[in-house]
Amino acid sequence: MNKLTISFCGASLEPRPSGALWWPEARLLCVADLHLGKAERMARRGGGLLPPYECAETLGRLDTEIEALSPEVVICLGDSFDDGPAAESLSEAHCLWLARLMAGRDWIWIAGNHDPAPLSLSGRHLGEFVLGPLSFRHIAQADGPTGEISGHFHPKARVGGVRRPCFLVDRRRMILPAFGAYTGGMDLSAPEIAGLMQSNARAILTGATQAVLPMIAA
């Protein structure tokens, strides 16, 4: 498959079909909104008992990317767990799996709105993180710095009759799609998203065909 490379604020970045973002120069992998433990949280609150394979699926995807890229730095861009208790109740097998993925890497947990409390997991726990021209945080700030990379909104675009998670990028900021298995999406036309992006912003689809299209048309 052709690799898609975009030049963003002086950094050369690769949005991956999986929804992860790869910065080869810094050997940095960034994923947003894993929402681990979502099924468990729903069950705890008396909702439907969803298929309990969501952590395995999300960790599996992350494993695949790490295996393929061998990053030195991994940034989880917030909402890595669906809530505080969900982080505590990760099964032993999944804890071990995660520990294996983290071993030998600089692992950064950015706080999200779902999981603001300090986590019991190892790795660095930060509100935001700056590296070179890029700054990483969970929610985009209205007047945030140039080179801001964030998650939170789970953008999705529809094109050719299908609806897929997508990256959004303009000259100043980039918003990542949700990487977690049990995550939904927000339409690009939603004012919360549309208001953040410049009019010439583009959407880059996840999935086998990494189509690039103007955000206003999607």
């Binding site: 094109v159 050719g160 010439n200």
Partner: peptide
């Protein structure tokens, strides 16, 4: 289906003058 998506995206880019 994949081809359809790619073609549609290209068409939209073109329509937007990009």
């Amino acid at each position: 289906r994949e081809r359809l998506v790619a073609e549609e995206a290209a068409r939209l880019m073109e329509a937007a003058g990009i």
